[in-house]
Design a protein around this nucleic acid. Structure first.
Length: 591
RNA sequence: GCUCCAGUAGCUCAGGGGAUAGAGCAUUGGUUUCCUAAACCAAGUGUCGCAGGUUCGAAUCCUGCCUGGAGCGCCA
């Protein structure tokens, strides 16, 4: 489905149009190949999609296409095919020189004139730079964080929060109408334990001798809540049951969670909880539907259980439970939907929730989960299939584990944080933000493939220096802002700037900046939000050397050249602003 | 035992059929009369875990193995 959508991608209407040059060239090459086939110079074969990419070396052009890949199909020498393509290539307004390079590459240079024109185009697009229309306004949802309200946002949740929010921003940039959702379980035994834990903490505050049993929530934060309850209500809550305390705890925890997330500029549009699915009896309707479709059965153990499992279950003398025959869909064993005590497992509401999600009509439903949810997510997917629904819109990003680390000065190795004497605890989002900054947390959590385990190096992130990529990127924007401030003070403007006076350095930056559209598309449609973080750093690395030599308000820069350069920096500032916002980071005017 | 993720420079990680494998940190040396040096310039560093295979071409794909992490509940 994505392919068909992406094929009809368009850019938003603006006065100026920024193009996805890779796509343009790919299309043009396809046209050239068809023409060559038409003319008989090339045999007929189905043209495979070979992506145009940016070569590593400058002398290999800005966009490169390996025609080598067609050699076998065309039964011709790669270099000859490349030549044919070059011959038949329709005119492209952005293309300068087109070279054929051995062993069979088409290397296309972007024309300087085109690059210069893009500067005003970038400024015109402003905050919506490279706002794509791939999504055509279709509905997308990102479900992320989804931590149960039983404690603070941990470092692991934080990764999901940052990745999810960046994903949402990228989908918006790709043209989707995006909803951010937070789903949580508040109907199970864990919340009962939370309520009882708070109740005991409350009684402790009143001087009762109460111990928290093992498995209850031992965290000190519940003591804080209990202290508050005593301060506000004295001992008047002594008669309240655990339900009261559960609700009080849930409410307090959610206030905390929302405040923590807000501190890194993350806000959900909707909070959806399990209780809704119970109250609406939706979970039972889902179970009935699965039963109707023949995927549900009752039994003390699952149909494929071996002797050991049966012996184990028999020993526990369970009453029969309700099973989902998920093995039909490739699962390794069937799963319990309703326990023998009549309570549903958490899987059933989870399936019901995703069913509801699909019924709400999202064309894309991204789910950001920790890798420890892998099996669970598979079962949910099987459940959706058992309902006769298509799980295709659902895409899960699994984040591998994350831990806070510090460098051990003796070994030089990174070690998990808690053992550090200097550190104290820093395994919550609040701690991380306090020790570093919201921007640093966001950047470092994002600048890693979700598939990689992440060691959050607290010491490195704390450093506010050029050692830290966060400030390296932001400083690019700050430097632009500094130029604008100084220009304003001197009453200098870029009105009537002649961009022909710009040099190769400036154009090198524009070249790189024009890749942003492709980066957004790739990051959004392939669910790889980390790409935007790497691109931001690369762009800053192109920017800073230019800043050093391309001076605007310098005694040796003639006013006409200064004007053109000022206009250039206006464009650069737009690009960095857009990038920083896509990552959910701030774009400070000064640092 | 099975499933998923990872293994690339001293460290943390990008790249994931294409041209001479990259970045940051760390190391060494240099740069500032003028828009913030949180910057720039220069230097060195590799058995891309191991072994086979596919291919014109493999860090990238396939198979097997090794190492580390996460799962495999009538927990949520």
């Amino acid at each position: 489905m994505l392919e068909s959508v992406s094929a009809q991608h368009r850019l938003s209407k603006g006065i100026q149009h920024l193009k996805l040059l890779n796509k343009e060239l790919e299309t043009a090459i396809e046209t050239a190949l068809l023409s060559a086939q038409e003319s008989g110079e090339l045999p007929r074969f189905e043209i495979p999609r070979i992506p145009v990419s940016a070569p590593k070396r400058a002398d290999q052009g800005d966009l490169s296409y390996p025609a080598i890949g067609l050699a076998k199909l065309a039964r011709k020498k790669p270099l000859d095919i490349a030549s044919l393509i070059a011959d038949w290539l329709p005119p492209l307004d952005f293309a300068g020189e087109v070279q054929v390079a051995p062993p069979g590459f088409i290397n296309c240079f972007i024309a300087d004139d085109y690059l210069k024109r893009q500067i005003d185009a970038i400024i015109a697009e402003g905050d919506s730079l490279f706002q794509l229309d791939i999504g055509c306004g279709e509905k997308a949802q990102v479900e992320f964080v989804s931590a149960n309200p039983s404690g603070p946002i941990t470092i692991g949740h934080t990764r999901g929060a940052v990745v999810g929010d960046a994903m949402a921003r990228l989908l918006e940039a790709a043209g989707y109408d995006v909803q951010r959702e937070y789903y949580y379980n508040n109907a199970g035994v864990q919340m009962i334990k939370l309520g009882k834990s708070l109740m005991l903490r409350y009684r402790q505050q009143l001087g009762d001798a109460a111990e928290l049993p093992a498995g209850y929530y031992q965290g000190e934060y519940l003591i804080d809540v209990a202290v508050d309850l005593v301060a506000n209500h004295g001992d008047s809550l002594r008669g309240e049951g655990w339900e009261f305390f559960r609700d009080a705890a849930e409410s307090r925890m959610f206030d905390w969670i929302k405040r923590s997330l807000a501190s890194i500029d993350i806000k959900h549009d909707r909070f959806y909880n399990e209780t809704e699915l119970f109250d609406s009896r939706q979970i039972w309707r889902v179970l009935d539907k699965m039963r109707e479709n023949g995927h549900i059965y009752e039994g003390a153990y699952w149909e494929g259980a071996d002797e050991d499992e049966i012996a184990d279950v028999t020993a526990k003398s369970y009453e029969p439970a309700t099973w989902f025959r998920s093995t039909t869909f490739g699962d390794e064993k069937d799963r319990v939907m309703v326990k023998s005590d009549g309570a549903p497992t958490y899987t059933l509401p989870d399936i019901a929730y995703h069913c509801d999600k699909l019924e709400r009509g999202f064309d894309i439903a991204v789910n950001v989960l920790g890798a420890d949810h892998f099996s669970q997510a598979q079962v949910v997917k099987h459940g959706i299939e058992a309902l006769g629904m298509d799980p295709a819109p659902i895409h899960v990003i699994f984040n591998q584990m994350v831990r806070a680390v510090r460098r051990n000065d003796e070994t030089g190795k990174l070690e998990a944080g808690k053992q550090s004497k200097r550190a104290g605890d820093f395994d919550t989002l609040d701690d991380l933000v306090e020790m570093t900054s919201a921007d640093a947390v966001r950047y470092h959590m994002l600048a890693r493939s979700p598939n990689s385990q992440l060691d959050f190096d607290v010491d490195q992130v704390v450093k506010q220096s050029n050692e830290n990529p966060v400030y390296y990127i932001q400083n690019a924007y700050v430097r632009c802002a500094g130029i604008f401030r100084e220009a304003d003070e001197r009453g200098f403007s870029d009105a009537g700037a002649d961009l022909n006076l710009l040099g190769d350095d400036e154009l090198r930056f524009i070249r790189k900046a024009l890749e942003l559209g492709n980066v957004i598309e790739q990051a959004a449609l392939n669910y790889e939000p980390h790409k935007i973080a790497f691109f931001a750093h690369e762009l800053a690395a192109v920017f800073h050397p230019i800043y050093d030599t391309v001076r605007v308000l310098h005694s040796e820069a003639p006013p006409e050249i200064a004007k053109a350069r000022l206009r250039f920096y206006r464009a650069a500032a737009v690009v960095f602003y857009r990038l920083l916002r896509l990552m959910g980071m701030s774009a400070p005017e000064r640092m």
